[in-house]
Design a protein around this nucleic acid. Structure first.
Lengths: 390, 390
DNA sequence: GGATTTATGATGTAGCTCACCATTAAGATT
DNA sequence: AATCTTAATGGTGAGCTACATCATAAATCC
């Protein structure tokens, strides 16, 4: 029986109401006291006291009065999203992305560094450092303003933020990424699998905003996956949830190879462009290309069905590089899923492009901060470089 | 952002404290006021008022004073588990089981009715009715004392409590089971997949009490599965979570057939006894039998790996009829899982035998009641046939 | 300029939790 | 048997908290 209800004293009630007011403010945008009272289902007088406290702590600030309505103009308040910053990182095979966002998750600045799957880890880590550096200076962010950093990396990331194993990047196994970043940044660091963050991004800001349970399929030359349940990315007991790609029956690590050796693709095409050419040919109706796409889709569908039968999602989101060719992939995939699934989930293509993982990192960071900072069990801290526990 | 914190009134605080006290009482067993104050981290005076309220509502009763300690003897209180009853049902292919339990989930009485996979649905429903009938009379329970009934059935059960599809029982698809039981019982009814309830039972009362994330594998002539995450059975968006058995690559619906046609098993052996004979032969070291077992295990392992790679559980529990032969199955299964999983989960055999599903049904019912009755959002009802919403 | 509208600030009431105290009922000690 | 020790009980008052209500203030509308 997992009933862990905690009661408490009057101060706790006050805290509860403060958090309720703050949540209402964040969820519904700027508001007057009366509006907030309505939203949080509390008396105006209560809201007033609570908002005063929140302003003193620095979580809420008063906005410029905007006239235009009749009656006495109301003071309007909003969440002080600029009080701190969240750093989001996407460490992919071919690029490193850094973004700085405010506490609402609004991205303020983005920088990009090139990378390659073959480069040694020190070079990649250096690229990460450069991306962070230029993103901070570019957005005018002091290192002390960053409350939390969240990194998304390919590969299996354990609960300590160590990249245990990566197949997409050569020298990227057994990398203590959280430690490296923590030493550099002087703030808590979370490291997550990239697909999981991309899935979260789609669930919060992308195509899946109306869904609570979804499977995210990262399609590319290598395929990855992630599961979101009740709006929360599923990590599993050791952080390995979604790693269906290593299953011997659906070898997603090399699934892209199914898209090679199509006659209509010119022999000289560089490896990176082959898949795109096959998709283009299939789009034109080339029979061999369509057959290759179907082979690719069939493997994908088998893996997706296995996941769908395990967690029964409402939605499957197609993301990753190849999702640009969703027009070619979707229909055959839908057909395959329909023949195999017990309750076929809806299928949609991602709408967040390239920065999907970085945005997911920010979302994850904001969620984490909200959970830690606005926890009814502990005192509400002041909005100044608070102590975050990871 | 899913922050749905609700603040409130002083009455709400009182309610919160009442629930905290009640939870502490239920979790830790009978207690004195001082002990309860300690457990719930509240002042004695508060506990006193709250317990008085709870006694008036009928949720808490005073026990006989038990002397033997020095100092003024303290009144001892306990949760009034006898205030209501939960009915648990297991509707299997070969039997129907009914149990009556109190609000702590203690089983008071069990009845059993035979069934067969071939019988028409009306006969099976009649057997269910008989099992309920004799279980109620046998335990001296009035129909009005049953607050909630939970049924576990083989097959895919949708969120409305309808058995959509069953392969283990012939005439058992598209059965509105919740409606049938609801009309008979005059109390709310929950219907769930049987494997899911068995998994819950292992997690609460069985071998998996220390685990929060697990995959449950129902092994038999047909195999089924269920997932428990954070101590809660995973239903999925439509109740189909865990139905990995219908995946075309691991055809678990007929996996038992892999255990046939072993020379050392006498030709005349009845179909039900073949598997047991094969296991027995394998146990003795018969090579053909071991090979058959290995074929069976390999299929099982592929399906289990797919699930494990999706949700990354800490534990896989082997349950169902064939788990009696866990000694033969475990080791090869462990080996297979180790070669395929990224993070191999621990493997254990079920300890709750035949009544596993029924016990799980009771656990699920008690959980549901706790959630609905002791919800901080609503007033605490009196402990007399309360209105339960499903 | 007056009427209307809407937000603000202040007051009083009721309810809750808690710390503190004297009281009570048992076993332990002399 | 009388006294001491121990530990729970019951009651009181202090300090907060949330809420409803009311007079007041600052805009727009006619």
């Amino acid at each position: 029986m997992t009933l862990s209800v905690t009661g408490g004293d009057l101060q706790r009630l006050r805290r509860l109401n403060a958090i309720a007011a703050l949540s209402a403010l964040r969820a519904g945008g700027p508001a007057t006291l009366t509006q907030l009272a309505e939203r949080a289902d509390l008396a105006r007088a209560t809201i007033k006291v609570v908002v005063k406290d929140l302003m003193e702590l620095g979580w809420v600030i008063q906005m410029d009065p905007n006239g235009g309505e009749k009656g006495r103009p109301a003071r309007r308040y909003r969440f002080h999203a600029e009080a701190g910053r969240v750093l989001g990182l996407d460490i992919g095979a071919h690029k490193v992305l850094a973004v700085v966002a405010d506490l609402d998750g609004n991205v303020l600045h983005t920088t990009r560094e090139p990378a390659s799957p073959e480069q040694p880890r020190t070079e990649r880590l250096a690229a990460v450092d450069r991306a962070i550096e230029s993103c901070l200076t570019g957005s005018g962010t002091a290192a002390s303003d960053v409350w939390l950093a969240v990194a998304g990396s390919t590969g299996y990331v354990d609960l300590q933020g160590r990249v245990v194993l990566s197949r997409a990047i050569q020298d990227w196994s057994d990398v203590p990424l959280a430690d490296h970043l923590g030493a550099r940044l002087r703030c808590p660091v979370l490291v997550e699998n990239d697909s999981r963050l991309a899935a979260l991004a789609e669930c919060r800001r992308g195509i899946a905003r109306d869904a609570r349970n979804l499977v995210f399929l990262h399609v590319g030359r290598r395929a990855g996956a992630a599961v979101v349940l009740d709006g929360v990315p599923l990590r599993g007991g050791g952080g390995a949830a979604g790693e269906i790609g290593v299953h011997p029956l659906f070898n997603l690590g090399y699934v892209g190879e199914l898209l090679q050796a199509v006659p209509s693709v010119e022999p000289g095409t560089p490896p990176d462009a082959v898949a795109g050419a096959v998709f283009e040919a299939a789009r034109r109706g080339d029979v061999e290309a369509r057959r290759a796409v179907l082979r690719y889709v069939k493997v994908l569908a088998l893996a997706t069905t296995a996941m769908a039968l395990t967690v029964d999602p409402d939605l499957v989101v197609l993301g990753g590089g190849f999702s640009r060719s969703a027009d070619v992939l979707m229909e055959p995939l839908r057909v395959e899923l329909e023949t195999m699934c017990l309750r076929t989930p809806e299928l949609r293509a991602s709408v967040l492009g390239d920065e999907c993982v970085a945005i997911g990192a920010v979302c994850h960071g904001v969620d984490h901060l909200s959970k830690v900072l606005f926890d009814p069990e502990t005192d509400l801290p002041a909005a100044t470089s608070p102590l975050i526990t990871v």
